[in-house]
Computed example of a mutant assay.
Amino acid sequence: MTLIIKPNKSQVLSASQQLSLLRLPANKRTRILKTLGRYERTLARKRISSQTTVDGRRFAKSKSGKKSRLLQRLGRTLEPYVKNANRLELKHKAPMTGRIAALHQKGGIERMTAARMNRIHGQPDYKAPASRSQAKALVANGYQVRKAKGGLRRATIREVMETLTHGKAGLILSKLRGKQKKQSWPIPVAARPFLGDKADNVQRQLAGIIEQINKTQRG
């Protein structure tokens, strides 16, 4: 979110407040904007906590079907920054986190790679027993084993988990599906705008901060 302060007749700030703000030394304007930034950060974190967008709608559900809360880490690392004493930005220190936040804010396509999956989830232990999800997928795709008296029959989930390794199960599943192992693939990301605010609300809050400072100075 970016805020640029300029006198504007449609703003909530009165003309005297606008002029008073613009006359302030740069360090005081910076302090005012940082106070506003902390307020906007609190709003963003509340939206993430309630899983709602700026306009009050529920976040789009995760494609994976998981019911865990979304964007939790993005709220924790959000910080207010002030540029040239007249521009407020809420952003993340880490550029990668900022790119992820922007993707979720606006929606788009994320490119996932096998190498990145390994960094996120760790390198799979290909010698470990096949997982239950692999076994279920193999059975669903028609994986067969030999009968004691000859011929083939469909394997059970238990048989797959007891006889195949994680690596071998993955290779067999790829062959049954007729697919080669992908090195990269697109993941659609739904827009979940949690940053931003209505202009009148921003200006109203700014007016309140200025008034509070004036009261302190008068006291």
Rank of each mutant, 00 (worst) to 15 (best):
M1A: 08
M1C: 04
I4Y: 05
I4C: 01
I5C: 00
I5M: 06
P7W: 01
P7I: 05
K9Y: 05
Q11R: 13
V12G: 01
V12F: 06
V12P: 01
L13S: 06
A15E: 09
S16P: 01
L19M: 13
S20W: 05
L21G: 06
L21K: 06
R23F: 09
P25W: 12
L33E: 01
K34D: 05
T35W: 00
L36Q: 00
R38K: 15
Y39S: 06
E40M: 15
A44D: 01
A44F: 02
R45P: 02
R47A: 04
R47E: 02
I48S: 03
I48Y: 04
S50K: 14
Q51W: 00
T52N: 01
T52E: 02
T53A: 00
R58P: 03
S62Y: 07
K63P: 15
S64V: 00
S64I: 00
K67V: 09
S68H: 02
L71R: 00
R73Y: 14
L74G: 02
T77P: 00
L88T: 02
L88A: 02
E89F: 03
L90P: 05
K93W: 11
K93Q: 15
A94E: 11
A94V: 06
M96A: 12
T97A: 15
T97H: 08
R99V: 12
L103P: 01
Q105P: 09
G108F: 06
R111H: 14
R111E: 11
M112T: 12
M112R: 14
M117E: 09
N118V: 14
R119I: 07
R119K: 14
I120H: 03
H121Q: 10
P124I: 05
P124N: 06
D125E: 09
D125V: 06
D125W: 04
K127Y: 13
R132L: 15
R132E: 15
S133Q: 14
V139Q: 12
A140Q: 14
A140I: 08
N141R: 14
N141K: 11
Y143G: 12
Q144M: 15
Q144H: 11
V145W: 07
V145S: 10
R146T: 10
R146F: 01
K147N: 15
G151A: 11
R153Y: 12
T156F: 07
T156L: 10
I157Y: 08
I157F: 07
E159W: 15
E162Y: 04
E162I: 03
T163D: 08
T163A: 07
L164C: 05
T165I: 04
H166M: 08
G167Y: 07
G167E: 06
K168G: 08
K168P: 03
K168N: 09
A169T: 08
L171H: 08
I172R: 08
S174K: 09
R177K: 14
R177G: 15
G178H: 05
Q180E: 12
K181R: 13
K182S: 13
K182D: 09
P186I: 06
P188F: 04
R192M: 11
R192I: 12
R192W: 09
F194L: 10
F194Q: 04
D200K: 08
Q203S: 13
L206W: 03
A207I: 00
E211V: 06
Q212Y: 02
Q212L: 02
N214Y: 10
N214I: 04
K215C: 04
T216A: 12
Q217F: 13
R218Q: 14
